[in-house]
Amino acid sequence: MNGPANVAGLRERERRAERIGAAVTALPDVAGLSAGPRAQVVTYRVGAPYTGVAVRDGEIEVGVVARRGRPLPQVADAVRGAVLPLADGLPVNVLIADIQDDASSGGSEGS
């Protein structure tokens, strides 16, 4: 499908990825977003892709760099909980791509 409806759909996908990214990076246990080890957790848009959130037709995938301390399953649950209200009923998969010490700086591949 081409034309204005397709463009509007792509823009909504971009906006959803950005809203999800903002919600996830506001979590205290998330140091940043990550495209993952194969750089596949991305949403394509005009310009550079939005890394760390992949809004797909059948799912949403979020890649994060977790802060050390909290058990990783709890971090993943917190991420999923932040994303579900924005997911429009789509399943949410969480990839913890890395762990950052509080003393460390960097380590995330933000957008």
Rank of each mutant, 00 (worst) to 15 (best):
M1T: 12
N2M: 12
G3V: 10
P4E: 13
P4M: 12
P4S: 13
A5W: 12
V7P: 00
E12R: 15
E12P: 12
E12L: 15
R13W: 12
E14V: 14
R15Q: 13
R15Y: 00
R16D: 04
A17F: 02
E18F: 05
R19M: 08
I20M: 12
G21S: 04
G21V: 01
A22D: 13
V24F: 04
V24Q: 00
L27T: 11
D29N: 09
G32C: 05
L33F: 07
L33P: 07
A35Q: 08
G36D: 01
G36E: 00
R38Q: 08
A39P: 02
Q40H: 09
V41A: 00
V41R: 08
V42A: 02
T43W: 03
Y44I: 11
Y44H: 15
V46L: 14
V46R: 11
P49Q: 07
Y50K: 07
Y50R: 09
G52L: 04
V53K: 03
R56M: 04
R56T: 07
R56P: 01
R56I: 02
E59I: 03
I60N: 08
E61T: 14
E61P: 01
V62Q: 08
V64H: 10
V64L: 04
V64G: 04
V65Y: 06
V65K: 00
A66V: 05
A66L: 01
R67Q: 13
R70E: 10
L72T: 11
L72N: 04
Q74L: 14
A76L: 02
D77K: 11
D77T: 05
A78F: 09
R80Q: 11
R80W: 03
G81W: 03
G81S: 13
G81N: 12
A82S: 07
V83E: 01
V83H: 06
L84F: 01
P85Y: 05
L86K: 10
A87G: 12
D88W: 03
D88P: 04
G89L: 08
G89S: 08
V92K: 03
N93R: 15
N93A: 13
V94P: 01
V94H: 02
V94L: 02
L95P: 00
L95W: 05
A97Y: 10
D98G: 08
D101V: 00
D102M: 06
D102V: 11
A103S: 14
S104D: 15
G106D: 07
G106K: 09
G106N: 09
G107K: 03
S111T: 13
S111R: 15
S111W: 15
